[in-house]
Design a protein around this nucleic acid. Structure first.
Length: 212
DNA sequence: ATCCCGAGGG
DNA sequence: CCCTCTGGAT
């Protein structure tokens, strides 16, 4: 089966499984989505959701966070792990947004990548979900794993995987696509003991029924 | 012990 | 390509 055809089925079936890809859009602003995405690194969304209400009440926009002390940011996000890196980067990002983008989260790839702590995965999430720009596909550990299992790519480097995936999917609604892929990887095509018996893609998966 | 919706640096 | 950063859940 050709990869293009396989990708079409992936999109169609996952759209059925996740009919309302709104949870990535639960955030009120690009700023909230950016912060939540940064916090989600190596951390479950449950723990992210535990700290975001307090965070956004205290620092609702880049202007307010830009004036914070790193110490208080660390305390606020401690439970999400990597808190020193995350707080330093978020603080510097907020200050840069105030200084160079008039307090608004930028909406271009190059401007997002220039923010400390923001690489392609985070930039793609923000571009596709906050701004509706279909510039790239967000490749995290989940997407990396499932794309390989489904035979959509043989690459291991996330940037190569993204280049392999982009031509396979119609270049629209990538916000929803990014959401589907991450959810599916987390909930079904799990790293250990994947739920193949419940998988909507088992019949097109080269790995279905193949031991280990 | 091991893993989790990454990014930066060597 | 490798390593490090982190707490919390299991």
């Amino acid at each position: 089966m050709q990869r293009m055809h396989r990708a079409g089925i992936v999109l169609e079936r996952l759209a059925q499984r996740y009919p309302r890809p709104a949870s990535a859009l639960q955030w009120q602003s690009p700023w909230e989505l950016l912060v939540a995405t940064v916090l989600s690194a190596q951390c479950t969304d449950q723990r992210v959701n535990a700290v975001t209400p307090g965070f956004f009440h205290r620092w609702p926009d880049p202007e307010s966070l830009a004036q914070a002390e790193q110490e208080e940011v660390e305390q606020a996000i401690r439970s999400t792990g990597f808190f020193r890196n995350k707080s330093k980067n978020l603080l510097a990002t907020a200050q840069r947004i105030v200084k160079e983008h008039e307090g608004q989260v930028p909406d271009t790839m190059s401007q997002l990548l220039a923010l400390p702590g923001v690489a392609r995965k985070t930039a793609n999430i923000v571009l596709s979900n906050a701004f509706g720009h279909n510039e790239g596909i967000a490749v995290d550990t989940h997407v990396k794993r499932l794309a390989n299992r489904l035979g959509l790519t043989d690459a291991k480097d996330p940037n190569h995987i993204e280049q392999d995936l982009m031509p396979l999917f119609p270049q629209n609604q990538w916000g929803a696509l990014n959401h589907y892929l991450v959810l599916f990887g987390r909930e079904v095509c799990k790293a250990r003991s994947p739920l193949c018996s419940q998988c909507p893609l088992y019949d097109i998966c080269p790995r279905y029924g193949v031991p280990s």
